[in-house]
Design a protein around this nucleic acid. Structure first.
Lengths: 161, 161
DNA sequence: TATTGTTATACTCTATAACTATA
DNA sequence: TATAGTTATAGAGTATAACAATA
């Protein structure tokens, strides 16, 4: 008699997976990502296009290579994003006189306006998602996330020299 | 004279994006995902195949539909995962006598052994990634992540009845 | 030689429609 | 009719190689 016949699963249990931080991170991030996607859609923006606008705003005149590095994406994948934002007149590209290979990126007035409106909407939605988390717990979580982001998993025991 | 000529960007600044929790979550999750991927690769496992093994172990006899729901993926996408795990003799499928449409999933002895070994490796790697985070901060972070995962962004102000 | 932006391409992950066999 | 598993397919996101223009 197979186990399955006597063990009717009533509710799925993920206790075993909850011991892995990565699992809880993925579940929480998926929830946030869904909300961000829904929130930005009315503005014709995705997570990555919004992030590109924000980073250009924060680093006016940066190059595509710098933006790709900042967003942690590959240069080829940035090209279509830049094309789309330029076609919508949200950003402009200017040739840099001192290095004619690179483009200096900046927001147009339309880009500035859209970034401001979308940022406001996003902050509102995020506040609603986080409203059950106490402010000091949020601050602690963000600090912990930063430590994790910058962690390297190389063992540091033992000297080589 | 273009702004870009006078504003040489020296280092990319993401302060503006750091006000959005989703951005910090994505950066931290990417770091964890990279480490998990590297850690599981020697076992021939990916994040999703490892999670499937763990969830089958924790819910022996569950169906593919239940597993897909538990892993928050679509049923069609689970099929190839199940096929792969079965082909490697890590799981087995048994027809359920009372409902011949469904399969009851369970780990084989090989599956149990691989899950144990991979889990150990993963816990070690995660401990190294999190070693800069104090234990109480980790506990607080996991609690906050759980609240975020279960948040719904619908406004609850105002009664309808 | 090396770098910037670009094209082409491929691989993974994810989402939907529609089929079959069972209920 | 509804559900479980499946097939086919399409869309994102992501990664690498290689090219032209420029340094």
């Amino acid at each position: 008699m197979p186990n399955s016949a006597k063990n009717k699963v009533v509710r799925i249990n993920d206790d075993a997976l909850r011991q892995f931080t990565g699992y809880s991170m993925k579940r929480a991030f998926n929830a946030i990502q869904s909300d961000v996607t829904r929130t930005l859609a009315p503005f014709g923006l995705r997570m990555i296009t919004f992030s590109a606008l924000a980073m250009i705003s924060d680093n006016e005149g940066l190059s595509q290579s710098q933006l790709a590095a900042g967003l942690a994406i590959e240069r080829p994948n940035l090209v279509v994003i830049i094309d789309e934002l330029e076609r919508r007149d949200l950003i402009s590209r200017e040739r840099v006189p001192t290095d004619r290979r690179t483009y200096a990126l900046q927001l147009t007035p339309e880009g500035v306006a859209l970034l401001a409106t979308a940022s406001e909407a996003l902050l509102e939605h995020e506040a609603r998602m986080m409203r059950e988390v106490a402010p000091e717990d949020m601050a602690n979580m963000l600090a912990a996330l930063r430590l994790i982001e910058n962690a390297n998993t190389k063992a540091e025991t033992g000297r080589t020299g």
